[in-house]
Design a protein around this nucleic acid. Structure first.
Lengths: 146, 146
DNA sequence: TAGTATTATATAGCGTTACTAAATAGGCTG
DNA sequence: CAGCCTATTTAGTAACGCTATATAATACTA
């Protein structure tokens, strides 16, 4: 198998799996959130309060984009902004109780479906897979710095 | 490592790596294409002519969305539609020469950057990683059918 | 074969995403 | 303190993505 072919297969699988991660069909939950909003809320739920800038970096969008996304989520009462210290320019974003409830309600089915597939691997296989991906992540992030 | 934690790490890495796959920063090419347009064009370049419906399934969007995306790419003279047989309703989409040129010009750097990271693995590791992802893909697609 | 149901795509409308440009306020440095 | 940089906001615009609807083509059934 030539290298280009291996890489191409990898890319294809990556894109396929990621579509599952993003798919609203996947979790089969009827709600009014967009895919991106859902992912953003989940990220906040898992990782806690984040600044606008951090969230923008995380999703690889401009801070202005993130600010406007947070506007809409604030309007929906799913997140709130609060000022931060020691830098008064920074705004932290956190989930409201309503936001937390929503994620909890909708995440379980999503996780379960992913787990159904992930569970086919042994513990060792899981570790190995994660190790590969971590190595890739590290290297890709390095390349981004160059 | 608890199962939920392993899965969470996997998800995080997946999302990080995929952001690289999608990032226009990643390929550092100045052009007027959006990320989604670029991915779509590349898909056509690699896989040849596809129907609107097929493309919609591939990107997990509605056919109407895809039709309008193709409208814009047709307007830019990067793709063209042509009727298909034996079903007269079906429209095939193919790259123009201009579209092909553009992808060729922009893809090399993108592939090279990915390869820089992928190359850290031995051939055996690559095969193993791809095998894991294939197993995941198959299982996830099965779950979608249920 | 006629009528009905289903399917592939197109079109329009609307909210969201994502970018750029510009602005404001805060922080840092010489 | 002035100038420069930074974090976020606001506005404008094109693209994305959905729903609703329409049209034409195909498939199915009595």
């Amino acid at each position: 198998m030539k290298n280009n072919e291996a890489l191409e297969q990898f890319i294809t699988h990556m894109q396929t799996i990621n579509r599952h991660l993003r798919s609203k069909v996947f979790d089969q939950q009827p709600d009014s959130l967009t895919r991106v909003q859902w992912l953003l809320l989940r990220h906040l739920n898992r990782n806690g309060t984040r600044t606008i800038g951090q969230l923008a970096v995380h999703l690889d969008v401009r801070p202005s984009t993130m600010s406007q996304m947070i506007d809409r989520l604030e309007k929906s009462k799913l997140v709130y902004r609060e000022s931060s210290q020691p830098d008064a320019r920074v705004k932290n974003v956190a989930l409201t109780e309503e936001g937390k409830d929503l994620i909890k309600r909708t995440e379980a089915l999503w996780m379960e479906a992913l787990n159904d597939s992930f569970d086919q691997f042994t513990k060792q296989e899981q570790s190995e897979l994660i190790s590969y991906m971590e190595r890739l992540t590290v290297q890709l992030n390095k390349n981004m710095r160059n």
